[in-house]
Amino acid sequence: MVEYSIGGLRDMFLGNVRRLKEILKYAKISSDVAEIDASNLVHKEVNDLMRYCALQGVRRIVLKGVRGQRYIGTRLYFPDPRPKLEIEIHGFPGNDLGAFLDGHRIVVYGNAQDGVGNTMDSGEIVIYGQAGDVVAMSMRGGRIFIRDDVGYRTAIHMKEYRDKVPVLVVGGTAQDFFGEYMAGGRVVLLGLNLDDKPHRARYIDTGMHGGIMYIRGRVEPWQLGKEVGIVDMEAEDWKFIEKHVGDFCEIFGIKEDEVLGGSFLKLKPVTKRPYGKVYAY
């Protein structure tokens, strides 16, 4: 075992990491399903085992006893084309769940922490619970469904390109700076747990210059950044909402009619160039 220490401090990621052969006992592989007991594993060990399982041809990984381990699903990029994995997490994954995710599907039975889907490329993350701050930051593709609330700075600088349009659906409400700097993608905030109370996030979509946000429930104009405007819902928007919110309701067992019956607000940037006029050329 290599002991990593920096200037007397233990490296919180690499310290006490055991070699793969020492932790193989925590993974049980039967045909194409692997079950990993994560309760005694540190961050890197969980991902070491997951990568090992993926290389063994496993298609589905069930993680039990997850207690705050970070980057789950991040180290599953392989240059050669391989089938994508189905990852089931029981417990509480740590920060940066599914960061840079490459097409896999992650389902969390519990709450997630900060940085869910950070710079995620493709795939799907479903969370049966709530998530922390900076969810879907710079997300580039795929879908994230969060049943309950999200924290501050959600969907910052989300992007899109041609047919690669990321989608985030949040069942509860969000905190300040929701959708700040958004450059693309679709964000839906449903406010299902608000009981008709207004959303409380401020600075929504400040600096937004691309993408679309849909908010169900009450939001006052002062809560919005000055770079966005409220526009009318069109047929295409309803089609989008029906598809993705429909999927959301189906996954979480929520009555779709009640959700779609609410009032939706569509927010769009007023310009693709919010700061074009601040310079003297």
Binding site: R70, G115, M137, A183, G207, G210, P274, G276
Partner: peptide, 26 residues
């Protein structure tokens, strides 16, 4: 860059997931 044509490519001043050394580490 993977952004729509004609859109300003805005790089925010901070990295919004880094507000501390601990975040940088992350």
């Amino acid at each position: 860059r993977m952004i729509p044509e004609g859109t300003d490519a805005l790089s925010p001043a901070p990295q919004h997931d880094i507000y501390s050394i601990e975040d940088l580490s992350m």
